[in-house]
Every structure is written in C-alpha cells, then in structure tokens.
Design a protein around this nucleic acid. Structure first.
Lengths: 162, 162
DNA sequence: TCAAGATTGATGCAGCTGCATCAAGTGCGC
DNA sequence: GCGCACTTGATGCAGCTGCATCAATCTTGA
C-alpha cells in the first residue's frame, strides 16, 4: 500500500491546508480586531447555551467540540476566569462536575454570533454561490469520512466550527 | 456590509475547518508515528533543496512558506540544531544570511517525501477521484482569492498563514 | 464484598505561536 | 555625505497545545 497520490490529489491537499489556514486566520483576525476572544470560546459558549438548562458535563463538551480532554479542562478554566461560565457540583457522579453558562456568557455568545456571521459571509459566502458551497460541502464530506455531522446546520448553528 | 451567510456557506465553512484539521492531523500523526519531525520542517527542507546550490535567504523562505518572520527564524534554529541546515554569512547584505541545507537535510527530505506521499494518498487521494480532486481545487482556489501569487503586501504583516 | 480496571477531570512540563521590540545594516532623497 | 525610513533577522514574554500522569471516583465481575 505505497501508492503515490495523483497530481490532482496533491494539489487538493496543498490547497486544503493553505486555503483553510488563510480563511480561518482571516476570520479569527476579524473577531480579534472587534475585541472578541478566540473562536474556541465561542464554540464552547454556543454548546453550553444550547444545552438544556445551560449546563453540561465537560466530557460532553469535549465530544461535541472534538477537542482533547485537557484542552476542554483548560478552556473551561478560562471561561470561568472571565465569568462566562461556572463550575457546578455534580451529585450523581462525584468525579465529575457541571459547567453552566452565565448571563455574561450568553450575552457574549450572542454578540459574537453577529460578528462571526459577518466574517463567514465576507470570507466564504461572498466568494461562492450557494450551489458551489454545497458542492464544496459534498467534496469535503467525502474526505471527512469518519466525521459524521448532522445535515446542514441552522442559521443559529452558524458555527460549531472547530 | 452585515449580510448573513447562507446555510450553504455556513455549512461549507464548518466543513472546511473540521475536515482540514482532521485530515491534517491524520497526516501529521502518520509522519510522527514513522518517527519524522513536523510537516513544517519538511516544507522548509523541500524549499531549501529546490533552491539553486541548496541555499536561500530566510526572507525568501518566509515568502515561500507563508509563515511569519519570527516563525522562520525559529524554524531555522531548529533545523540548524538538528544538523539539517546551516547558517552561512551573506556578504552582499550584512544584515542577512544564507541558510543552506546539509547532506543530512537532503536525506531526511527524501525519506519524508515517501512517507508524506503515502499519507496524502491514504487520507486524500484514495477518497476522491482525480476529477473530484480537481473540482475541489477549483472551489478552494476561489476562497483563496488574494492568496495565489497575489502581490504580497509589504512583507512583514503579509504572512499569517498557519 | 472487594479488587482490578475504567472513567472523569486536573496539572506539570516541554515545545510552539504570536506580539512587541530590538540591533544592525541598507538605501533613498536631498 | 547625511539623516531618516526601511529591511533583515533575533529574542523576551505570555499564552496555548500535546503528552504524560495523577487523584478521585465509579463499575464490573468473580
């Protein structure tokens, strides 16, 4: 199994890496310039805000966000430090805990959502027709294979990116 | 300019971020498991090996690789520490220097090339037909817009890829 | 019931990134 | 020739990531 990739596959690989990093960077920079924290914070706040009663276990958050355990743990640290979330005792399982989004957290999430949407439109939406965006989705999904994602997310889902 | 992105654009954004990070990670892990250094090292060695007489200025490398200046500087540090490259005096411009790939550097580059090709075939090539890979290229290029060969805005702030 | 193993979350450490800044050298305009 | 703006490359610092590992708790099975 040492087949070599075709020129087309190699070109696709290079573009995938370069374009994504460029576009992601552009979006993150837009948010940063608007005074917002990193995208990962937004993703976490979004997950929390959607959870029933605004709280979930770190282990759940970790699965939703597809990031490693220690990363979740530290992200929660930062959110708590900034007053965007709070840790709550978990009585069912004393190893664990609950993370609950605060009012401040919900507000930030809403504000970031607008800026985020604008950035996505600027760096992605405005450059592709809807039909082309759908084609791109299809092609990328084939590469993702193991990464099963629900169909097209709703507008508010604007971003479970990352 | 506060238009909202379409569902298709949002979905494309999400997939772009997720799939790329997943595929990139898979490729990097393959190389790592084979005992190789990070991809950035390979990219640098490849650029150096292609340069006439195997040497180039850091500022050139920086432009080729689309990474920031300090990142280049430190990458060179690491390559030199490992004996894969060497710094040479630059007589034309005493501020600058040349980076020259060593024999060890060339050998590593060749070895990594095989493993890298195999990984690309495994994680990209085997999942897309050549025609689809070409389509993907076309779509991604549209997102890259300013990226392909475009006039680089005054050096320093230009590079923020990766 | 109890020991072995799995799960949950935290943390020390090393390495990498980005930011800001620095020193040295170049070159343009006058 | 001179001064000032720019280029080139390095580095201190803070923050983030990945790895390994830990303590606490839960679960399973004999």
């Amino acid at each position: 199994m040492k087949r070599k990739p075709s020129l087309e596959a190699t070109a696709a690989w290079i573009r995938l890496v370069r374009v994504q990093s460029r576009v992601l960077d552009a979006v993150e920079q837009d948010l940063k310039r608007a005074g917002f924290p990193p995208l990962a914070w937004y993703d976490a706040l979004l997950e929390l805000s959607r959870a029933p009663s605004g709280e979930m276990r770190p282990v759940e958050l970790e699965k939703q966000m597809l990031i490693p355990q220690y990363s979740t743990s530290r992200l929660i640290d930062r959110l708590v430090d900034e007053g965007l979330a709070a840790r709550r005792e978990c009585k069912m399982d004393k190893r664990g805990l609950f993370v609950e989004i605060t009012e401040a957290g919900r507000e930030l999430q809403k504000k970031m959502c607008c800026a985020y949407s604008t950035a996505i439109e600027k760096h992605v939406g405005s450059k592709l027709s809807d039909a082309d965006a759908a084609k791109l989705c299809g092609l990328l999904d084939r590469l993702g294979c193991a990464c099963q994602e629900a169909a097209v997310p709703t507008a508010r889902d604007a971003a479970s990116a990352r």
